[in-house]
Amino acid sequence: MYGNDIPEQPGHARLLDEVAAAERDLTGRGLGGDGTEGGADDYFGAVIAADGKIEPRDEMPEAYRKSLIRQIAQHAHSEIIGMQPEGNWISRAPSLKRKAILLAKVQDEAGHGLYLYAAAETLGVDRADLYEMLLDGRQKYSSIFNYPTLTWADVGAIGWLVDGAAIVNQVPLCRCSYGPYARAMIRVCKEESFHQRQGYEILHVLANGSPEQKAMAQDAIDRWWYPSLAMFGPPDTDSTHSAQSMAWKIKRFSNDELRQKFVDMTVQQAEVLGLSLPDPDLRLGEDGHWAYTQPDYDELFTVIKGDGPCNRQRIEHRRAAWEDGAWVREAATAYAKKREGATV
């Protein structure tokens, strides 16, 4: 549908297979059985141990609930803030076909943000409160979206590298222990399968275009490579949330494991494009994995703390949209109240 005129990305189909397998496991659990027959005292622990799913009204440790809210909200915020850097190019997309694809993609991100906020709301928080925590900085979003999109090729690089890294991160979440999050992630991953491909296709066309286009593509990859690696978070040795999340089966692989998986996939995809990754020390090790240069984690923390190139701009844009829309939301509420009163 959206372009089949490019080589298949190595590794792409395998990730989608994993999403499909997670969905099969979810629907194929059969009658009853959540792994806790006989009313165990520690219901939560038993479900987790049996690889079952925790559902909204189940008893669960407060820390588990809080940790999930934090992670799901952060994920939802990332989708919503992530609309901005790409949305920056909708009005200037260089062909009508690209304009349609990009608009559909950015729209999907709004949809994905909504699915995720909905999953967070099953834990007893209100979306408006989550918005507020985003706007006042109490909750974060992925730091990658605090970098600017300077050229059209950035749209391609975001699709290929940023969405690629996101998918590697998200596919294991399709098996997360919290049911609503796992189901939302399956839906998101299935819909996102076109996102990464469209980015790869954009770069492939540029790489085979004029010298200016090729240079534009290489420049974008040079700027987005290390921030994409940083998307997996700090190294395992410094990660504060990882161990507990793994025990709860919210998270199933460590930051470094996922980062390695991403590098291994991406190196070959870059070769097919005929573009290079900006790391002179990439080496295929004897274990079959690529050795790579770590991203600058000091820079990552600077951006996380709010001092990246676009942090202020992204939040201001979001705040303006929310505040400018207040009178509209109030109008709909007032209208609904009037109608309710009229029909009683």
Partner: peptide, 11 residues
């Protein structure tokens, strides 16, 4: 399939 926010049923 999930949830959403709206002021009334029509919306």
């Amino acid at each position: 399939v999930g949830s959403l926010h709206a002021a009334d049923a029509e919306q």
